[in-house]
Design a protein around this nucleic acid. Structure first.
Length: 155
DNA sequence: GCCAACGTTGGC
DNA sequence: GCCAACGTTGGC
């Protein structure tokens, strides 16, 4: 079992939206970065746990925990010209882009803001906190996970 | 709104 | 294959 961090702009899709979704589940579509895609395709497994991160928020924050309920399968939004993330170069017979499905486990309330996370020594090496970090699907170490859960529990 | 960091594109 | 130009991400 592995740990991950998925980014989403809450204006687009928030943790609250995930909780409100049917079966508290959604397909994590729209990933259009190869490194992130490779994680989804090759390493994210059913049962893995996910930190749901709100980017472009005030403050940016970890807002909840989710679990992976379905492993990589084709991202249908890549084939729909009406979709924002439509990719005409993706061949339906050999899809370029995949999604996984995740289900909300529990909210972290109040969310753990970025400044707060930066104050935790155990998270100093976390990819999220690296200057210029843009990866939208990030691996999280067990030690980082434990530190984040400890912080959530202490508040 | 600014801008640093990063990924992609395309000319050569 | 190099790299400049460009577009995007995302914190501030």
């Amino acid at each position: 079992m592995a740990y991950w961090l998925f980014k989403s702009e809450p204006n687009c899709f928030s943790f609250t939206d995930l909780v409100a979704a049917p079966d508290r589940t959604t397909g994590w579509d729209g990933v259009r970065n190869f490194q992130a895609r490779n994680f989804l395709r090759d390493q994210v497994r059913r049962g893995d746990l996910v930190l749901f991160y709100h980017s472009n928020a005030d403050p940016p924050a970890i807002a909840g925990v989710a679990e992976v309920v379905q492993e990589a399968h084709p991202d249908p939004t890549a084939f729909d010209p009406g979709e924002q993330h439509y990719d005409p170069k993706s061949d339906p017979a050999n899809p370029t882009w995949v999604q996984v499905s995740i289900r909300a486990v529990r909210a972290i309330d109040p969310p753990l803001g970025l400044p707060q996370l930066r104050g935790i020594a155990a998270l100093s090496g976390m990819e999220l906190l690296r200057k210029g970090s843009r990866l939208s699907i990030q691996p999280v170490t067990a030690a980082e996970w434990d530190a984040v859960m400890g912080l959530a529990k202490s508040q």
